[in-house]
Design a protein around this nucleic acid. Structure first.
Lengths: 165, 165
DNA sequence: CAGTACTTTCAAATATTATTGAAAGTTAAT
DNA sequence: ATTAACTTTCAATAATATTTGAAAGTACTG
């Protein structure tokens, strides 16, 4: 397989995977491109390679920086900005987990906690409600703590985890 | 807090969480409603409670059945169909993990494996490409095997896992 | 078999989300 | 202070995804 074909295929697949996971396609594709790059890329180069508008590239680069997975760089003597992403898959997974935890698990924990305050245990529906939301809360707390451990761990942690079974 | 308010809040939140995870809002809300129900619900009742069209309820119920998390039931003497969902959070998590593994991890593994066949190791870009996609592949295989273990485990597995740290 | 009580389908309408591109903003050099 | 090189913003547009509702399909009942 030709390099250019493989590259396209990978960028495409990464974009699709991203969409499945609530990350927009352009964002995932820019990230894929940076993952493959052997040196920092400018917005211009990204526009060119992915055939995207300047605005789109700019917005998604900012989103990637918000997620903490892309960094700006400056080259000496160059005025424009260049972008890079870390190549360590473990770091990437940790960073993404950390952000999703903050953005998604925390809000649901808050809701689950709040709705537990419902009144009227005597009614069958309310009892069921408390049971279900309580179970979900307990589960979410456990997932949350697991992710927390993961994001603070090193690579070997996960290996060890797998060994255990 | 009133029961009806808490219920609304929970259904709403579950819908939002679903959207974040690539599950459409209606599907997640129907699931939430079934989670709270103390007895099987008919399509009619779901339409009524969630203010959704018949077609939408029908399609999303089918999707939930495809995911293996909602079941049809028949009441004696009743002609229409009723629906239920399991109330065990662990089973639910396992089922969802299993389906997402099949639908999402497997395809990406295939792509990563395929693009590894790129030719021309001598070039810097190709070397980088192989390294990055190879690392992603290794990582994905590990995640895959972890999920596989999870979906085959019982509740205590996760507890034990948490204890280890 | 005809009628009734339901479920399913799907093309069209609506809502949501992503993308563009041109104008406004910023910064650095002269 | 002006210009040039670049970045950011955002209203308009395009693309995508969801929802509707009415018609078609199915199957039970008498």
């Amino acid at each position: 397989m030709e390099y250019s074909e493989a590259k396209q295929k990978f960028i495409q697949a990464w974009g699709t995977l991203g969409s499945n996971w609530g990350i927009n396609k352009a964002m995932a594709q820019i990230h894929a491109l940076l993952l493959l790059a052997t040196e920092p890329l400018s917005a211009e180069e990204i526009m060119e390679e992915l055939q995207m508008s300047r605005g789109n590239v700019n917005m998604n680069l900012r989103a990637l920086m918000d997620w903490g997975i892309v960094k700006k760089e400056h080259k000496v003597g160059e005025r424009k900005e260049f972008f890079t992403t870390g190549k360590d898959v473990w770091d990437l997974a940790k960073q993404v987990s950390k952000e999703r935890r903050r953005r998604e698990i925390e809000p649901i924990l808050n809701v689950l906690e709040e709705v537990q305050k419902v009144s009227g245990d005597n009614k069958k529906e309310v009892a069921e409600f408390k049971k279900v939301t309580g179970d979900l809360f307990d589960f979410s707390v456990k997932v949350d703590s697991m992710i927390d451990k993961f994001t603070k761990s090193d690579q070997t942690w996960f290996y060890k985890l797998l060994m255990k079974f």
